Simulated scan of single mutants.
Amino acid sequence: MTDHGEPRWLDAEERAAWLSWIAATTLLEAALDRQLQRDAGMPMAYYQILVMLSEAPDRTLRMGELADRTLSSHSRISHAVSRLEERGWVRRETCPGDRRRTFCTLTDEGLAVLAAAAPGHVNEVRKYLFDRLTREQVRQLMEITNEIRAGLTGEFVDPTEGAPAHV
């Protein structure tokens, strides 16, 4: 808003960039979700949970931390973990020192499912995103998305920290 209460409308270039961003991210998320559903029988949200657990010490996180890392609500993560538990990919355990807290652990079966799904997923990420960009564009994309994320969360994201190969 301006000082006079008027919205700061997007100019033509900003509007074009905004609409392009929305289309690209929507199409990319849908393509990745379709591939995971087709090849691994799971939605992207489940894959993300398995990845976060695979990277945690002892493949275990508190449910609240898992929700934070996946940018999910506590109720949404609880529902997803219930479905993953039914498949035998994760298990929940009450924290021994604090019965109010629950841990989620990636099982050996869940790790095997993730290991089988990862190559196809990474191939799709490369195909639709990284193979289309130059190294400089990848760096710019990282800087731009880190800036957007920092504006939304107030957290600084260290661009030098590498992500694991199976993301």
Results as ranks from 00 to 15, higher is better:
F103W: 15
C95W: 13
V122M: 08
L36K: 00
L141C: 07
I144L: 13
R92S: 15
L27H: 11
L152H: 10
R38C: 00
E147D: 12
E85Q: 15
L32I: 04
L50P: 02
A80S: 12
Q35T: 08
Q137L: 08
G97M: 08
Y46F: 14
E85D: 14
D108R: 13
G88W: 12
R100H: 08
V81T: 15
E143N: 09
A45G: 07
R69T: 00
L141T: 14
M42I: 08
G64Q: 13
A165Q: 07
D158R: 05
R100K: 14
E143R: 09
I144N: 10
L66F: 07
E93G: 12
A112M: 08
F130W: 15
L141Q: 07
L114C: 04
E29F: 01
A67W: 10
E86Y: 02
A118Q: 05
A163H: 08
R38I: 02
I49Y: 01
G162R: 11
A150Y: 05
A117Q: 02
I77H: 03
L152C: 05
D33C: 01
F156Q: 14
L36W: 00
R99E: 15
G151F: 04
E124L: 08
E55P: 05
A31V: 07
L84K: 02
L106K: 09
T60L: 06
K127Y: 00
V51R: 14
L53R: 02
L61D: 12
A163R: 10
D33H: 09
G41T: 04
L66N: 07
S75W: 10
H74F: 12
T145H: 13
L50I: 01
D158S: 04
L27P: 04
E55W: 01
M44R: 12
L111I: 01
N123F: 05
T105K: 15
T70D: 03
S54Y: 02
R149Q: 04
V81P: 07
E93M: 14
G162T: 08
A116F: 06
R100G: 09
M63I: 14
I77A: 15
E136T: 06
R34I: 08
G110L: 01
L61C: 08
Q140M: 14
G151I: 06
R83L: 15
Q137D: 08
R38M: 09
L84Q: 01
P96M: 06
L71H: 15
N123C: 03
E65C: 05
R135Y: 03
V81W: 06
M42E: 11
L36G: 03
R149D: 06
R69V: 01
R62I: 10
V157M: 11
L36Q: 00
R59A: 12
